[in-house]
């Protein structure tokens, strides 16, 4: 589904990703862990299509297409979803209008008829139940005045509505209390299918108590320096990132 080869990315002249390789297939959950500043969020941004960085080298293909040439809205319509680390507050734009527009833009892209108002409301109710999210979030302006937990839950709700093929969740667990964390994790687990995939970007092992990854990668200084199964996360939790740093420096 997603293939990243030797990706080198710089921001304002500073190289952040230095030859990153990653392959994600349908049905897989990947966790990318690493200390602050290792390039985790930059990777998420590259996949979603932010434009503040420069790709120096390497390639990213998604479903066989060169992802880097595709504008962000088309990526979204082709099934890529970014769960934001800091979801943006947009006063005056109602959540329902936003989501209905998004869903229908996607349907148009796929050659489907737009959803009627009634069908859309039905879908909203259905997805709310599925990801166990209270109704009040949808009656408000996008993220406006939401608590940190509500914002993250709202990301999962949007993910449920848009039914992406590839979800990249950027530090979705940061700043959540245990209850909110469970809601988020339940959402991700419920939405998991054989034909979709998830990349969890996280600093802590805690989220991985609730979402069991198939692969864990350690991103350090712009490269994936270690990959393994879910045990790797536990090892990291125990030994800390210094262990990785020492290993890398020893090479």
């Amino acid at each position: 589904m997603l293939k990243i080869k030797n990706l080198n990315v710089s921001v304002e002249g500073k190289t952040i990703l230095k030859g990153l390789n990653l392959e994600v297939n349908e049905g897989e959950v990947h966790a990318i862990m690493g200390p602050n500043g290792s390039g985790k969020s930059t990777l998420a941004s590259v996949i979603a299509g932010r434009d503040y960085f420069t790709v120096e080298k390497g390639e990213v293909t998604y479903m066989g297409k060169n992802l880097l040439e595709i504008p962000p809205e088309v990526r979204a319509k082709e099934g890529i979803f970014l769960g934001f680390q800091y979801p943006i507050e947009i006063p005056g734009v109602s959540m329902t209008n936003f989501m209905r527009t998004a869903i229908n833009e996607k349907r148009k892209h796929l050659g489907l008829k737009p959803l009627t108002g009634a069908d859309f409301l039905k879908l909203i109710e259905e997805k709310k139940k599925l990801v166990k999210i209270e109704s009040k979030l949808t009656n408000r302006s996008v993220n406006e005045g939401f608590s940190g937990g509500e914002k993250k839950k709202n990301e999962i709700f949007q993910m449920a509505l848009l039914e992406p093929k590839l979800s990249v969740l950027d530090e979705t667990d940061s700043g959540l209390d245990i209850d909110a964390l469970k809601v988020v994790a339940n959402g991700v687990n419920t939405l998991k299918r054989k034909d979709n995939a998830t990349i969890l970007i996280t600093h802590y092992q805690r989220l991985l108590d609730f979402i069991i990854p198939d692969f864990v990668h350690v991103l350090y200084d712009g490269q994936i320096v270690k990959s393994g199964g879910k045990e790797l996360a536990l090892e990291l939790e125990e030994k800390g990132y210094n262990w990785i740093k020492q290993e890398v420096q020893a090479e």
Binding site: A76, F98, L162
Partner: peptide, 8 residues
Amino acid sequence: FYLRSRGL
């Protein structure tokens, strides 16, 4: 970007 990342 937030809006575009959802397909608008």
